[in-house]
């Protein structure tokens, strides 16, 4: 477990020293969302119907911008080799790494989501639902992204490949996240979709690092 915390702190610290790459999704997402009221027209009735789907789709696409960077630097610097060739459990090292990546990419999206919801004229309960669904959904997105990124380490054009690989797995998260936001927006209970997202998150936390650890030890072959 100490390896989890240690890897988290190490990665988070090095992300903070070069935040540019990882903050790109936040800026991209924010700019794209701000274009919708201009493109569709600022009428609240029209915007608020479309808003849950639009925000979720945009944020998913935004998160794809940086996912290939998750292991790239560590692979180039040979740190990944050293992590594999150490007594530390790769499972916890990976979990810590994905945690730090989420803090840098997913968490900022969660934090600015109320602002995005206001730009898209969502109701108060809709805003709350959006933030909660992103809080549950973005870690799953990071975990799935880590699986894709670990499989494409060192491959030229890996950024495109990882997108094609993991986008299908984002679909259930998108459906659940949008449905949860819509439920909250129209004042219905969002427990059902929230519970499903939470279950997916627990499942991802438990098993995605296993898949990543396996993929990493194959990826360092060259």
């Amino acid at each position: 477990m100490s390896h989890l915390l240690m890897s988290f702190l190490r990665d988070f610290r090095s992300y903070l020293r070069r935040p540019g790459d990882l903050l790109a999704p936040l800026v991209f997402g924010f700019v794209v969302i701000s274009l919708f009221p201009l493109g569709i027209g600022p009428e609240p009735a029209q915007l608020s119907v479309l808003s849950p789907g639009i925000i979720w789709v945009v944020l998913l696409l935004a998160s794809l911008l940086s996912v290939h960077l998750l292991f790239q630097r560590d692979d180039e610097e040979g740190v990944l080799e050293q992590q594999i060739l150490s007594p530390a459990s790769l499972y916890f090292v990976v979990l810590g790494k994905v945690g730090a990546y989420w803090m840098m990419t997913g968490m900022p999206l969660v934090l600015v989501s109320p602002l995005m919801a206001q730009m898209m004229s969502m109701s108060g309960s809709g805003t709350l639902a959006l933030t909660l669904s992103l809080l549950l959904g973005t870690p799953i997105v990071s975990l799935l992204g880590a699986v894709g990124a670990s499989l494409t380490i060192g491959i030229r054009g890996g950024a495109v490949l990882v997108t094609i690989l993991i986008l299908p797995f984002y679909i259930p998260i998108l459906v659940l996240g949008t449905a949860m936001t819509e439920a909250g927006h129209s004042g219905e209970s969002m427990v059902f979709h929230g519970a499903l997202l939470a279950a997916a998150l627990s499942f991802g936390c438990a098993f995605a690092p296993l898949a990543v650890a396996g993929a990493l030890s194959v990826s360092v072959e060259n």
Partner: peptide, 28 residues
């Protein structure tokens, strides 16, 4: 575990010498 030093840097360019080595110690 054997210690392997290859052609790659083996240390993170963004971290200081002390942070890099402290992480190594913790890893092992």
């Amino acid at each position: 575990h054997p210690l392997y030093i290859g052609h790659k840097a083996g240390v993170s360019a963004d971290l200081s010498i002390e942070e890099n080595l402290a992480y190594l110690l913790a890893l092992h």
